[in-house]
């Protein structure tokens, strides 16, 4: 069953239309990748799902019509966003960042710390004083604390050191294998995505132009839709 179903989604920033025809679905327990070149509408799609910008078209999440909900309600239904550029609550400590987002469920402070031991070492430190990688872990941890049904990772490995990227990818596959969480990943690293993703959607100029399993991504697909 589809947890998230998007059909003919379109959205605009003022007079400029960014999305024309996005079609996408995420099933329960599935890791789905949303790919495409820069400026093609990946982040706009995420913002639409999280109700941060107005959009038109069909958008259903766990049996609810997302289009009629304000963003905090969408999050309460179980959409956990790890936003692009991390966006932690800078003036709060690691512990406070996590606690402020907590909603009851499987994930709690102890389990997040177990997943990211580094956050445990830094629990009293303010988010602004963390390194980029630690902030990314904190952003993921914060999203998990809301006990989401769907985790959305928007460019979660962008601009991070290779070792940290590896750690984040390891966590993503751990989440997939051990908790069966549905995940929507936006990323550009094809090889890492192939290792964890069940299915891939590619967008170009605001439209879904390709979908298939990760294994089906051929050199031609990469050249046509992803290569620079």
């Amino acid at each position: 069953m589809s947890l998230l179903k998007i059909f003919q989604l379109n959205a605009s920033y003022g007079a400029i239309q960014a999305l024309y025809d996005i079609n996408l679905d995420v099933r329960e327990g599935e890791v789905v990748a949303l790919m495409g070149r820069n400026g093609m509408g990946k982040s706009t799609t995420v913002k639409s799902i999280c109700r941060l910008i107005p959009s038109h078209g069909e958008m259903h999440f766990a049996g609810h019509d997302l289009q009629v909900l304000p963003s905090h309600r969408a999050a309460q239904l179980g959409i956990g966003l790890v936003p692009e550029g991390r966006r932690c609550f800078h003036s709060l400590s690691v512990y406070e960042n996590l606690i402020s987002a907590h909603r009851s469920g499987f994930w709690n402070f102890r389990k997040v710390i177990k997943l990211f031991p580094k956050l445990g070492e830094r629990r009293a430190q303010k988010a602004i004083s963390l390194s980029g990688g630690e902030q990314q872990m904190l952003a993921i941890g914060r999203a998990l604390m809301t006990n989401p049904k769907l985790l959305i990772l928007d460019e979660a490995t962008e601009g991070l050191a290779p070792l940290i990227r590896q750690e984040i990818w390891a966590v993503i596959s751990k989440l997939k294998d051990q908790t069966g969480l549905s995940i929507l990943v936006i990323d550009k690293s094809i090889n890492e995505l192939k290792a964890v993703c069940d299915r891939v959607f590619i967008v170009e100029r605001g439209k879904t132009v390709w979908k298939g399993s990760a294994a089906q991504i051929s050199t031609k697909v990469v050249e046509d839709f992803l290569g620079v």
Binding site: H72, A75, S100
Partner: peptide, 24 residues
């Protein structure tokens, strides 16, 4: 308190707290 922390976060960025399910 969790309320105070969330409020602190909402002061900085209303949008960010919305995405974790809090009504700023």
């Amino acid at each position: 308190s969790p309320f105070g922390l969330a409020l602190n976060a909402a002061r900085q960025s209303p949008e960010r707290v919305e995405t974790v399910g809090l009504n700023g």
